[in-house]
Design a protein around this nucleic acid. Structure first.
Lengths: 159, 159
DNA sequence: TTAAATTATATTGTGTGCAATACATTATAA
DNA sequence: TTATAATGTATTGCACACAATATAATTTAA
């Protein structure tokens, strides 16, 4: 990408417009903003919606498994899960086999919420105006990037 | 993308693995994590680093201009800028022409910090192991997507 | 079969991120 | 010129995000 900035005092590597990370960061927040009006209707925040996506798939899992799926730690998940419990969407129960583990499962009400969320992906596709092919292509590329960065973080944490 | 999930109770649109937004969201947080050890050395958080990138380019701007560049609102920027001021990197002054505006500029110390940050982009390139071509390609794709979503949000807010 | 290491979750503190609101200033129009 | 609207920033409240720490349970190894 050509650097079209007039400023010659800053190296191109430090120009905001050349930051891949910033573009992704801004993209993520703008995407969340696009979801919000639809999530408001069913009473979920974006992070809560992600947790529910996992639970609609798996029915039951531990906090640790949720964290691995969503790349979130327990310090983020614990209060979030307590709010989902208070709203009546999920149950939190200690495992009888291993009392360190907290098992998360759906309530009837939480399972039923899936049908109300079913229309959201179509609304998002409409908003972004991506064709199916473009969507699949972008998803594949971003997953590849996510894998690389995740690996880089794992190897960095081992030092 | 082929849906390889065994679960047949969930529509593919609601599977976590098929969420473009989640992939970007996770990507963004993993990227921030990759920056952190390097930013720790110069005493900046990731968001503060982004503000400094803008100031190293523009030398002076208003809070509103910063928000437009970074897609952040004043509710996020004001406390962040106060911390940068407390650390001695920047100055915050009311405009004499229009007293609603707050002008942000670098201190000597803040300007000097740029040379310490200069090595960070290379460290990130090393961590992600992206070739120059791949980097440029991804940046272009993300910028295109960001533009689309930002437009979608603007038109949604007009309703 | 204890002691030590590992594992899993909770708690605390700092720093965003943003909607809603408030407030002051400037611009516009009747 | 005086309402009125628009603009720009600050404040408040809620929800993450994560590092550091604490606590408890399990595993392992001596």
């Amino acid at each position: 990408m050509q650097n079209t900035n007039k400023n010659t005092n800053t190296t191109p590597e430090l120009l905001l417009e050349n930051q891949l990370c910033f573009t992704i960061y801004a993209c993520s927040r703008e995407f969340t903003k696009l979801y919000q009006p639809h999530l408001d209707k069913i009473g979920l925040t974006y992070s809560q919606y992600l947790v529910m996506l996992v639970l609609w798939e798996k029915k039951q899992c531990t906090v640790k498994e949720l964290g691995e799926a969503l790349f979130l730690d327990s310090g983020t998940l614990t209060p979030l899960l307590k709010r989902l419990q208070a709203a009546g969407w999920i149950l939190r129960e200690r495992s009888l086999q291993d009392e360190r583990k907290v098992l998360i499962s759906l309530t009837e009400k939480g399972a039923a919420l899936q049908s109300e969320a079913a229309c959201i992906p179509a609304k998002m596709a409409e908003g972004t105006m991506l064709s199916s092919d473009e969507f699949v292509d972008l998803l594949g590329q971003f997953k590849g990037l996510l894998g690389r960065i995740h690996e880089a973080n794992i190897s960095a944490s081992k030092k």
